[in-house]
C-alpha cells in the first residue's frame, strides 16, 4: 500500500495533504502559545518551560517536545519531498508554454511553490534564531524566550523576514487547506463554500495571530 501511495500522483498529494494538516494543527497551537507574550515575561517564560515538562511524570523532561519535533520533521520532509517530486513532474508535463499568455488561477494558487520554498528557508532561520540561538541578534539566553523574542523583533531584518514569512504562510494555508480537503476526498459542491471560508478564516487568524508579536514589539506593547 505504501508503494502504491508513494508512486501515484494522487497518493503523493495525499501525503502532502496529511503532512500539511499536521503542520497546520501545530501552527494553530504555536500561534495561541505565542500570544501569551502579551501577558508578560513571567507567563511567557513559564509557558515555554511547561512545554518541556508536558506529560510528566509519564514522559521524561522534554520527551513530549521531542516527540512533537520528530513528527514535525517527518511532516516537513514528507511535504517538501512530495512537493519537489510532483513539481518536477508537473513542469515536465507542460514543456512548451503558450505564446498567448493569460493571468491564471488565484495569487495563492500560483505562489504555492515559491511560498513553500520561502517557508522552508524561514523555518531554518527561525530555529537557528530562537531555538538554538546560532544566528540570534544580541545575547541569546536559553530559558529566557521572552527576551530573545524581543531581541529578534528589535532588528529590522528580524521583522522583515518574519512578516514576509507570515504573509506567505497565510497564502499557503488559503490554498493548501482547501486543496487538502479535495485531495482527501471530503470536498463536495455543497461543502465547497464552507471549506473555502474555513481556509480563509484559518489563513487570516494565523497570519494576524503570528504578526501580533512583532507588531507588539515594534509598538512597544511588548518590551
Amino acid at each position: 500500500m505504501a508503494r502504491t501511495v508513494w508512486d501515484s500522483t494522487v497518493g503523493k498529494k495525499t501525503v502532502m495533504a496529511v503532512s500539511g494538516l499536521i503542520m497546520l494543527l501545530y501552527l494553530v497551537a504555536h500561534m495561541i502559545g505565542n500570544l501569551k507574550i502579551f501577558f508578560g515575561a513571567d507567563e511567557f517564560n513559564h509557558y515555554a518551560h511547561w512545554l518541556r515538562t508536558v506529560g510528566e511524570p509519564l514522559m521524561h523532561y522534554e520527551w513530549t517536545l521531542w516527540v512533537i519535533r520528530v513528527v514535525l520533521v517527518v511532516a516537513v520532509v514528507a511535504h517538501a519531498v512530495s512537493a519537489y517530486q510532483l513539481s518536477r513532474r508537473d513542469i515536465r508535463a507542460r514543456p512548451s508554454k503558450y505564446v498567448h499568455k493569460k493571468p491564471r488561477a488565484s495569487y495563492a494558487t500560483r505562489t504555492m511553490r515559491w511560498g513553500g520554498i520561502i517557508l522552508g528557508l524561514f523555518i531554518v532561520w527561525h530555529i537557528l534564531d530562537l531555538t538554538t540561538g546560532t544566528v540570534h541578534s544580541g545575547g541569546f539566553e536559553a530559558g529566557k524566550p521572552y527576551q530573545n523574542v524581543v531581541d529578534t523583533f528589535s532588528t529590522w531584518y528580524g521583522n522583515a523576514i518574519y512578516i514576509v514569512a507570515m504573509l506567505a504562510v497565510g497564502l499557503h494555508i488559503r490554498h493548501g487547506f482547501w486543496s487538502a480537503a479535495q485531495t482527501l476526498g471530503v470536498g463536495s459542491r455543497t461543502r465547497d463554500r464552507a471549506l473555502k471560508a474555513v481556509a480563509n478564516v484559518l489563513a487570516l487568524l494565523l497570519t494576524a495571530g503570528f504578526l501580533a508579536v512583532p507588531v507588539g514589539v515594534m509598538t512597544g506593547v511588548v518590551s
Binding site: V10, R89, D90, R92, R104, W178
Partner: peptide
Amino acid sequence: VAQMDEEGFGGCTLAGE
C-alpha cells in the same frame, strides 16, 4: 490513475483551470 501517471501527465494542484 496509474495509466494517467504512466502517460506523463502532470499532477493536480487544484488551480481549477
